[in-house]
Design a protein around this nucleic acid. Structure first.
Lengths: 209, 209
DNA sequence: GTTTTTGCACTGACCAGTCAGTTCAAATTC
DNA sequence: GAATTTGAACTGACTGGTCAGTGCAAAAAC
């Protein structure tokens, strides 16, 4: 019988194997980088034979590309959900940004290895998955840009802000603060980190109160 | 990275060769990553024989470690210089942060490949140069932390800010905005980027004016 | 005459990708 | 319902190529 896989459920044996391979690959590549990670290692960590990797993915880099798409899909969904929830609850646009900061932190808290690997690869050039990465980056940044644009239209943010640069900067703020948190101050709570970033977002560090 | 002939007294022939090797290695590793870059490539790009690489550096990873130390040295010197210049000119602490943001942007504008490579390696674990990276990171972040601490002591910043988290976030803001700028919007001017980050720093995006 | 660089052949480990063969649960047949 | 067939999923030994690092005699630079 054909595997059919019901489009979303993915409860086939194959899907389970792919999932195990994603999990094994994400930590190894985050720790060592793509080129330093061998297919044998990935297979071993996943508890699977090397041939199975090639049965499920055309090549090492295809495995990696699909892993990237998979992960960023989760992230954007989570960001968008946070923005929409705020909207629904009648919050302002700053509230939406703040909710997205928190959603970003929760994501990184849950998938630190993925985030690490994403950052490590994003600004490289000359790699085969370059285009995948660009698409995937744009998806994530666009969510932030949309909120900023709406905020300007609603008169809540200054008209002079540069949407794309500000979005980049906000993403960077969250990304780097969260990675530093996970790597060097893992004892801090998510709320601490969120509070610090909130304060910065709302200009409560300098200037006004 | 730069000619440095007069800088630290190292104007020997050997020093010139090492410099050429740094320059070759930094771009190649930024593009491809450490493991994917071969010693033969580095030698070829530097216009030098492979044996020369090993005459000047004990191994491929030692070359890389010394490259890291070299680059971050330049960065911290530049940040500290910016902070001190502001001090001397009687500027406030926000002015000092702002000057450091600009110094960071100027650095990244000049050495984009180094920045790229630094970010790609910083949060990895299990690598031989891990400890070098930690030291070097701390040097850079400490400069920002010092200014924040002074600002709090002088009553210019809220006492409630979390020094280390805020410093991380500020560094991240500059790093990511600048890398996105160089990679995806290279036509923008440094002043544009600086203006956008300044606005964010001073909370002129949301909340207050 | 010492330091540095060159050119190049060589080695041994390592690794991406292949392929002939195995496993096993579900489908089919009798 | 026992015997047989099917095929997707998986296995792991093997191959062909790559690359870090070595060794060394001769040339060049200082």
């Amino acid at each position: 019988m054909e595997s059919s896989s019901a489009a979303s459920g993915g409860s086939t044996r194959r899907e389970a194997t792919r999932q195990k391979l994603y999990e094994a690959a994400v930590t190894l590549i985050a720790e060592q980088g793509f080129s330093a990670t061998t297919v044998d290692e990935i297979a071993e960590r996943a508890g699977v034979a090397k041939g199975t990797v090639y049965y499920n993915f055309a090549s090492k880099s295809v495995l990696f590309e699909e892993l990237l798409r998979h992960g960023v899909g989760l992230l954007t969904a989570s960001l968008r959900e946070a923005a929409e929830r705020t909207e629904r609850e009648g919050g302002s646009k700053v509230d939406a940004l703040d909710a997205m900061i928190r959603a970003g932190l929760v994501f990184i808290d849950r998938y630190p290895a993925f985030t690490q690997l994403y950052v490590a690869e994003l600004w490289r050039t000359n790699r085969t998955w370059q285009s995948t990465l660009m698409v995937v980056r744009q998806q994530a940044v666009a969510v932030v840009e949309d909120v900023l644009r709406d905020g300007v239209a609603a008169g809540e943010f200054s008209e002079e802000i540069d949407i794309s640069l500000t979005a980049s900067a906000l993403v960077g703020m969250v990304l780097v603060a969260a990675l530093d948190w996970k790597s060097f101050q893992a004892e801090r709570s998510l709320d601490d980190v969120h509070a610090a970033l909130s304060r910065l977002l709302q200009g409560r560090v300098s200037g006004c109160r």
